[in-house]
Design a protein around this nucleic acid. Sequence first.
DNA 1: GCAGGTGTTGAATG
DNA 2: ACATTCAACACCTG
Length: 275
Amino acid sequence: MPEMPEVETVRKTLTELVLGKTIEKAKVWYPNIIIGDSESFCNQLKKKKIIKIDRYAKFLLFRLSDNITIVSHLRMEGKYRLATPHEEKNKHDHVEFIFTDGTSLRYNDVRKFGRMQLVETGTEKQKTGIKKLGPEALSEGFTLSYFQRALRNKKKNIKAVLLDQNVVSGLGNIYADETLWLSKINPERPGNSLSCDEITSLYKAINQVISQAIKAHGTTVHSFLDAEGQTGGYQKYLKVYGRAGKKCFRCGATLQKNHIAGRGTTFCPKCQEVK
DNA sequence: GCAGGTGTTGAATG
DNA sequence: ACATTCAACACCTG
């Protein structure tokens, strides 16, 4: 899926496309996408107006009139696009919001991993997946001292720590590898083995990579498209992700790919050597 | 046919 | 209770 920069890109494009529209009716073709009862989901959305679209880490929050919020997670391959209700259903279209102006918003998800949940606005931090998340990358709560404290008792490898949304939320496999390369830290190092300087360097790398990726409208490596069907731009800045077997831009060594923390992990065996 | 893939969850394990 | 690992979710691509 989209990691935080991609979700932020979707949020912005969705805002352009559907802000202010009123839902005439919602349709769910694949109920497993909806957490809770899908019929009641559709019933509660009738005549609700989209007044704002927020984001928390990788979650999208559609703020609707009458104090309700759709919390949406795209997981690996969820996508939104503007359509019309009489358009034929695409192969992996699972949910549709039909608007009173004759357009509609379709949710398409090849792997069906994405989820939507309807909650009373303000309760999303207690009632949804947001509840267990650590501070978002780039947010006020994600301070250097927080990060230092969080790493202190982490015995698992740093790659797994960066992927753990309870520690810091927003990073996924691509940006975890990029930040580790930038700060020259081997992905297998235990979290609590990092020096003070290394933690600082990694902290800066997280802020730098995520904010640049947001500026570039995210990364398209597999299938990511924003709500307007556009690809991201950050893929041209990637230093390690997808470059296994190629030369490190910094030292020229051949980049290596290992299975770490259950995910394919690309790194430079020379400048990210285990110390 | 088999493995791997932008993510999260819950069960199993220590 | 806590930290950590790993299969499962479902489908497409190489």
